[in-house]
Amino acid sequence: QWKVGDKCSAIWSEDGCIYPATIASIDFKRETCVVVYTGYGNREEQNLSDLLSPICE
Protein backbone atom coordinates (compact mmCIF):
# COMPACT_ATOMS: atom_id res chain seq x y z
CA GLN A 1 0.00 0.00 0.00
CA TRP A 2 1.27 3.45 -0.95
CA LYS A 3 1.83 6.17 1.64
CA VAL A 4 2.73 9.87 1.60
CA GLY A 5 6.43 10.38 0.95
CA ASP A 6 6.83 7.13 -1.01
CA LYS A 7 8.92 7.28 -4.15
CA CYS A 8 7.13 5.96 -7.22
CA SER A 9 6.96 6.36 -10.98
CA ALA A 10 4.01 7.99 -12.69
CA ILE A 11 2.88 8.61 -16.25
CA TRP A 12 2.75 12.36 -16.93
CA SER A 13 -0.48 13.24 -18.75
CA GLU A 14 1.24 15.79 -21.03
CA ASP A 15 3.49 13.34 -22.89
CA GLY A 16 2.58 9.84 -21.70
CA CYS A 17 6.14 9.18 -20.51
CA ILE A 18 7.05 7.65 -17.15
CA TYR A 19 8.89 9.85 -14.63
CA PRO A 20 10.12 9.38 -11.06
CA ALA A 21 7.86 11.06 -8.52
CA THR A 22 7.04 11.31 -4.82
CA ILE A 23 3.56 11.00 -3.31
CA ALA A 24 2.54 14.34 -1.75
CA SER A 25 -0.98 13.42 -0.60
CA ILE A 26 -3.46 10.56 -0.80
CA ASP A 27 -7.26 10.52 -0.93
CA PHE A 28 -8.16 6.95 0.01
CA LYS A 29 -11.91 7.52 -0.53
CA ARG A 30 -11.35 8.50 -4.16
CA GLU A 31 -8.34 6.16 -4.53
CA THR A 32 -6.27 9.02 -5.93
CA CYS A 33 -3.11 10.82 -4.92
CA VAL A 34 -1.09 13.89 -5.84
CA VAL A 35 2.45 13.21 -7.01
CA VAL A 36 5.34 15.65 -7.41
CA TYR A 37 7.65 14.80 -10.29
CA THR A 38 11.28 14.55 -9.12
CA GLY A 39 13.48 17.28 -10.55
CA TYR A 40 10.56 19.09 -12.19
CA GLY A 41 8.30 20.12 -9.31
CA ASN A 42 5.13 19.57 -11.36
CA ARG A 43 2.20 18.22 -9.34
CA GLU A 44 -0.49 16.01 -10.79
CA GLU A 45 -3.37 13.91 -9.52
CA GLN A 46 -3.04 10.21 -10.29
CA ASN A 47 -5.10 7.12 -9.56
CA LEU A 48 -3.36 5.00 -6.92
CA SER A 49 -3.84 2.00 -9.21
CA ASP A 50 -1.84 3.75 -11.97
CA LEU A 51 1.30 4.30 -9.88
CA LEU A 52 4.35 2.24 -10.77
CA SER A 53 7.32 1.08 -8.72
CA PRO A 54 10.23 3.55 -8.53
CA ILE A 55 12.62 3.56 -11.48
CA CYS A 56 16.20 2.65 -10.59
CA GLU A 57 18.40 5.56 -11.60
Score class of each variant (00 low, 15 high):
Trp12Tyr: 10
Val34His: 01
Arg43Thr: 12
Thr32Gln: 02
Ala10His: 02
Ile11Gly: 01
Trp2Ile: 14
Asn47Gly: 03
Tyr40Ile: 12
Arg30Tyr: 09
Glu14Phe: 15
Trp12Cys: 11
Tyr19Leu: 06
Arg30Pro: 04
Ile55Cys: 13
Ser53Ala: 14
Ser13Ile: 07
Asp27Asn: 08
Asn42Asp: 10
Cys56Arg: 11
Gln46Leu: 10
Thr22Gln: 07
Trp2Arg: 13
Phe28His: 14
Leu48Met: 04
Ile23Gly: 03
Cys56Gln: 15
Leu48Phe: 05
Thr32Trp: 09
Gly39Asp: 03
Lys3Gln: 14
Asp15Asn: 11
Thr22Pro: 01
Glu44Thr: 06
Ala21Ile: 12
Glu44Gln: 07
Leu52Lys: 06
Gly41Phe: 05
Gln1Ala: 10
Ile11Leu: 06
Thr22Glu: 09
Asn42Val: 15
Cys8Arg: 00
Glu31Ser: 12
Gly41Asn: 10
Trp12Pro: 00
Ile23Pro: 03
Glu44Pro: 06
Lys7Cys: 12
Thr22Arg: 09
Ala21Gly: 05
Ala10Asn: 01
Ile11Asn: 01
Ser53Asp: 14
Gly16Ile: 08
Glu57Val: 13
Ser9Leu: 15
Val36Ile: 14
Val36Ala: 02
Gly5Trp: 09
Ser49Met: 07
Asp27Phe: 11
Val36Met: 07
Phe28Gly: 06
Ala24Glu: 15
Asp15Glu: 02
Cys33Glu: 00
Ala24Val: 15
Gly39Pro: 09
Gly41Cys: 07
Cys17Leu: 15
Asp50Gln: 05
Gln1Glu: 12
Tyr37Thr: 00
Ser25Ile: 10
Ile23Tyr: 04
Glu45Cys: 08
Ile18Met: 07
Gly41Gln: 06
Asp15Gln: 07
Ser49Pro: 04
Tyr19Trp: 04
Cys56Gly: 14
Gly16Lys: 04
Lys7Arg: 12
Asp50Val: 07
Tyr19Phe: 06
Ile18Phe: 11
Ser49Phe: 09
Val34Thr: 03
Ile26Trp: 04
Cys56Met: 14
Asp50Trp: 11
Tyr40Trp: 13
Leu48Ile: 04
Ile18Pro: 06
Ala24Asn: 04
Asn42Ser: 12
Cys56Ser: 14
Ser13Gly: 07
Asp50Cys: 08
Asp6Pro: 00
Cys17Gln: 15
Tyr37Ala: 00
Thr22Trp: 11
Thr22Asn: 02
Cys33Ala: 15
Gly41Ala: 06
Glu45Ala: 06
Ser49Thr: 08
Glu45Lys: 05
Asn42His: 15
Asn42Ile: 15
Arg43Asp: 05
Ser9Tyr: 15
Ile11Met: 07
Asp15Cys: 08
Gly16Asp: 04
Glu14Ile: 15
Gly5Arg: 00
Cys8Gly: 00
Gln1Phe: 11
Glu57Met: 13
Ala24His: 13
Arg30Ile: 10
Tyr19Glu: 02
Glu31Gly: 15
Leu52Arg: 07
Arg43Pro: 05
Gln46Arg: 07
Cys33Leu: 06
Gly41Lys: 07
Trp12Ala: 02
Val36Gln: 09
Val4Ile: 06
Val36Lys: 02
Thr32Arg: 08
Lys7Gln: 12
Thr32Glu: 03
Tyr19Ile: 04
Phe28Gln: 08
Thr38Pro: 00
Ser13Pro: 02
Glu45Pro: 05
Ser53Leu: 15
Lys3Asn: 11
Tyr37Arg: 01
Glu57His: 12
Cys56His: 14
Gly5Ile: 06
Cys56Ala: 14
Phe28Asn: 08
Gly16Phe: 07
Glu57Pro: 12
Gln46Phe: 08
Thr22Leu: 10
Ser9Cys: 15
Arg30Gly: 07
Asp15Pro: 04
Glu31Ala: 13
Tyr19Pro: 03
Arg43Ile: 08
Tyr37Pro: 00
Tyr40Arg: 15
Val34Ala: 02
Ile18Gly: 01
Ser9Met: 15
Cys17Ala: 10
Thr32Met: 08
Lys7Asp: 11
Leu51Glu: 02
Val35Trp: 08
Ile23Phe: 03
Val4Met: 00
Gly39Thr: 09
Thr38Phe: 09
Gly16Leu: 08
Ser25Tyr: 09
Ile11Phe: 07
Glu57Asn: 11
